[in-house]
Write a protein that binds this DNA or RNA. Sequence first.
DNA 1: CACCCGTGGGA
DNA 2: TTCCCAAGGGT
Length: 364
Amino acid sequence: MRDEPNDLPRAEALLDWYDRHARALPWRVSPRDRAQGILPDPYRVWLSEIMLQQTTVAAVRDYFHAFTTRWPTIAALAAAPDEEVMAAWAGLGYYARARNLQKCARAVVADHGGVFPDDHATLLTLPGVGPYTAAALSAIAFDAPETVVDGNVERVMARIFDDHTPLPAAKPVLTAYAARLTPQERPGCYAQAVMDLGATICTPRRPACGLCPWRGACAAWTNGTAAELPKKAPKKRKPTRLGIAYLARRVDGAWLLERRPDKGLLGGMLGWPGSVWSEEPPAEDPPIRAEWKTLNEEARHTFTHFHLRLTVRTALVPMERTPGRGEFIESPEFRPADLPTVMRKAFDLAHGGRSAPVAGSGKP
DNA sequence: CACCCGTGGGA
DNA sequence: TTCCCAAGGGT
């Protein structure tokens, strides 16, 4: 860290800015309404926070609307079949979130009478709720003065204090800075305000320092280092893995699909039976005996830590033939939108053209 | 602590 | 094309 600002930034200055510039979001209660003592439904706050983990507001919007329309309460969500929740989450990514969403909903119903706990320590015990989400729920849904630290807050703190320690090593220090600035008053608005500041003004690239209410107290602004912060540890480059997907269609139109195991990549999601994905050319492993044809184009997809090139093979199989693995799903019940994106890409290639989103599914 | 876990949009 | 990034959590 270099020169710390002489004066700490004041929460009041940020709250004034937030009162004027708060974004209206479907899971949010406006600052004006919060001033009247109105707090948001903890269920909606929780759902939005889980969806927003490592995910943009733009990507979350439609999913949030679809979920809250279909499952308006945590009891409704807890009662929903796993497959329906996984299908509704399809395309949003990080599918462990959806599995933990169900676990958490059921835990709240079973262990807390269907009422979201308002205690920070208890929140931390819930599946899928870590330090960030527990603090966000405490602050936003219950107006408790907890310190939220997400990627936005890390960036804002690194700049305010001009801290050049690379992430993730810097996280504890940045958390301590954030705690120093957290006010006792209006903690819910403050939590959303810091994150909004990071999302709209103190952005990763080309921060709009000229518009920042905390500019006067920002060491990085003084030193001209804002744009290069926060520092990050160098990333590894992604290897490319190869695989084969087998898209079998029965003569009656049913598709052969397979539920993936709960653990690991795309856990719990529906997908095409296929080979293992590795950097070596895959061994053939068809799920059913058939005359397989290979598509000219392969499906390409990038996951968190590798690129995938997926060879797509298709076949038409007679009614009486039984698969070695997977299960035929009748055509009317099969919705491509229920598949994770990589599987939908394979389907689109086989089917010719992008599959249409299902009406009312809320998917892009 | 290091690694695993998706996706789409923008530079 | 390629890289980076987004309201992290679990193991």
